[in-house]
Write a protein that binds this DNA or RNA. Structure first.
Lengths: 260, 260
DNA sequence: GAAAACTCATTTGTCTGATGATTGAACTGC
DNA sequence: GCAGTTCAATCATCAGACAAATGAGTTTTC
C-alpha cells in the first residue's frame, strides 16, 4: 500500500461537514474505479492524515459508504470495496458519483430502458389507484410546467416534479425510488442538450395527456401517453448525442446546484 | 418529546458491533413508524444513554441511517426523519426492516407488480447482450436448482441466484438493484407457503425455458418464459395468502437466518 | 513432515472528555 | 412593531487511549 499515491482531487465543493467531504471524495474515487471491487482502502489513520481530519471524521465517512453498500469494514482487514452489484446505485449520492464517471450516451440509454419498463406501468397504476391528493400534486406539477415554459430551470424542476408525482401515485412503494434515476437523467439532459422552447411546447401536451388519462382513470390511455412522451425524450437524447459526439468529454457534473 | 418512552425491544440479535445494533434498532423503529417522517429522534446523548453506548457509537449509527435516506441531522435541530420517498427502500437493511412491518399480501403484490415490469424485459435484454461469462453463471444457477430439488433451503438460494444472474446479464446497471427486492420476496415466500416438492418440479422447466431462450438469444421467447414463470409464482402467493388468511398475523420476520 | 496450537501485529471498534460551529428562539433596543 | 443581538441546544470535530477481532507467521506436537 506504500505506492498508493492519491491526489487531493476536487474534494472542495461547497460541502459543509468534514465527514461529508471525505465520504464524497472517497465515494467518488470508488465509483470512478480508483479503488476497484475487492481492493482495500487505506486504513483510517492514513485516510485521516491524507484528508487532514481526525479518525472520527474518517470513520463516519466510512460508515456512510458502507451503508450505501460501497464498502465493508472488518477489524484487522480494513475497508474492502464491495462488488458493484452490492452498490446502492439508486442512492442519490452514489447515482451522482456514477453519472460523472459514465459515458452520457450509455447512461441515458440505460435510464431510458428502465423508464420504458416502469413509467408506463406506473402511470397505469396511478390511473387506477391514485388518491385525490396524489392527483392534486400531479396537477400542480403540470401547472408549474405550463407556467415555466419560458424559464429553463423552473421548467426542468417542474418536469421532474411531474414524473415523481406520477410514480408516487402508483401506490407501489418500490416505484418511487426510481424517481431519483429519472431526476438524474433530466438534470444531465438539461446540461447536454440545448433545450429549445419549441421542444417544451411540444412535450407539454404530452404531459397533459398523461394527466388527463390519470384524471379520468384510464390505465391503458395513461400507459400509451407515457410511452409517447418517452419516445420524444429519446429523440431529444439522440439529437443531443449527435451534437456532442464531436469528441467532447461527455461526463457531466450532476449535483451542481447553484441555488440555496 | 418528554413522553417518548422507548422500550429496549429486540435490539439483541446476533449483530456484532454496537453501532450496528443501534443502527438496526433505530432503523427498525423509524420504518415501523415509531418515529414518523418529520419527527425528531432523541439527541445523541440521550440515545447513548438509552442504548448504554457512547455518543461515538450512536453517531456512527446515525450516519448510516442518514446515508440510507432515513434521517437528516443538523446542528441545533437534531435528527429528523425524512419523508418516505427519500428512503432507500431498495437498500438491503431498509428492505428487511420494511418487510417486517408490512402486510405480506401487500408486500408480495407490490413486488410481483414490479417484477412483472422488470424481469421480462431484463431477460429479453439478457438474451441480446449477455456475455459468455454471464450465461455461465445463469447456467450454474440452474444446475444448482436442479440438484437441490429435494433441499428446500438450497433450492431457494439457487432460485435467487438464478434470477439475480439474469438481471445481471441484462447489461443495464440499474436493473440488478431490484434483485434485492426479489431476494426478499422469495425469502419470505419460503416461510409463508408450504413449498411443495411438486411445485419445484413444476417451475424447474420454466426456468429452463428462460435459460434456453437466453442461450439461443431469443429475446421474445425469454420475455414470454419469464412471464409464464411469474404467473406461476403469483399463484403460489395467492394460495399461501388463502392459507394464511385465517386471522394469522402476517408480518414475517425477514432476516431470520438460522444457518451461519 | 504435516497438522494443530500458539503468539503477535495490524486494523477496526469503543470510550472519554473537551471544544468548535451552527442556528432557532428568546431577548433587547430603538 | 421590527431589527439586531444574545443565548442555549445540538451536532461536528478533535485527541488520545484501550479493547476486540483476526490473518499470518511461529512453535509445538504427533
Amino acid at each position: 500500500m506504500a505506492g498508493t499515491k492519491r491526489k487531493p482531487a476536487d474534494k472542495g465543493a461547497a460541502r459543509k461537514s468534514l465527514y461529508n467531504k471525505v465520504a464524497h471524495d472517497l465515494g467518488q474515487r470508488i465509483v470512478r474505479g480508483d479503488y476497484k471491487p475487492g481492493a482495500l482502502l487505506p486504513n483510517e489513520a492514513e485516510c485521516g492524515q491524507f484528508y487532514k481530519v481526525s479518525r472520527t471524521a474518517v470513520r463516519e465517512a466510512v460508515k456512510m459508504l458502507s451503508a450505501k453498500g460501497l464498502i465493508q469494514s472488518r477489524p484487522k482487514i480494513g475497508s474492502r470495496v464491495e462488488p458493484r452489484n452490492a452498490w446502492n446505485l439508486l442512492d442519490r449520492d452514489v447515482l451522482s458519483w456514477y453519472c460523472t464517471t459514465v459515458d452520457f450516451q450509455r447512461f441515458a440509454n440505460d435510464v431510458q430502458q428502465i423508464r420504458m419498463m416502469i413509467e408506463p406501468e406506473a402511470a397505469a397504476l396511478a390511473a387506477l389507484h391514485r388518491t385525490a391528493g396524489q392527483f392534486v400534486e400531479i396537477e400542480a406539477a403540470y401547472q408549474a410546467m405550463a407556467e415555466a415554459v419560458g424559464d429553463e430551470a423552473a421548467w426542468n424542476a417542474a418536469d421532474v416534479r411531474f414524473h415523481l408525482a406520477v410514480l408516487n401515485a402508483s401506490g407501489n412503494e418500490f416505484i418511487p425510488p426510481f424517481g431519483r434515476v429519472i431526476e438524474s437523467l433530466l438534470a444531465n439532459l438539461f446540461s447536454v442538450t440545448v433545450a429549445h422552447l419549441r421542444n417544451r411546447m411540444k412535450v407539454l401536451p404530452l404531459h397533459l395527456a398523461i394527466l388527463e388519462a390519470i384524471r379520468t382513470k384510464k390505465p391503458d390511455r395513461a400507459r400509451d401517453a407515457v410511452r409517447k412522451l418517452l419516445q420524444t425524450t429519446q429523440k431529444t437524447i439522440d439529437e443531443g448525442g449527435k451534437l456532442n459526439s464531436a469528441g467532447k468529454p461527455r461526463a457531466r457534473k450532476a449535483g451542481a446546484k447553484t441555488k440555496r
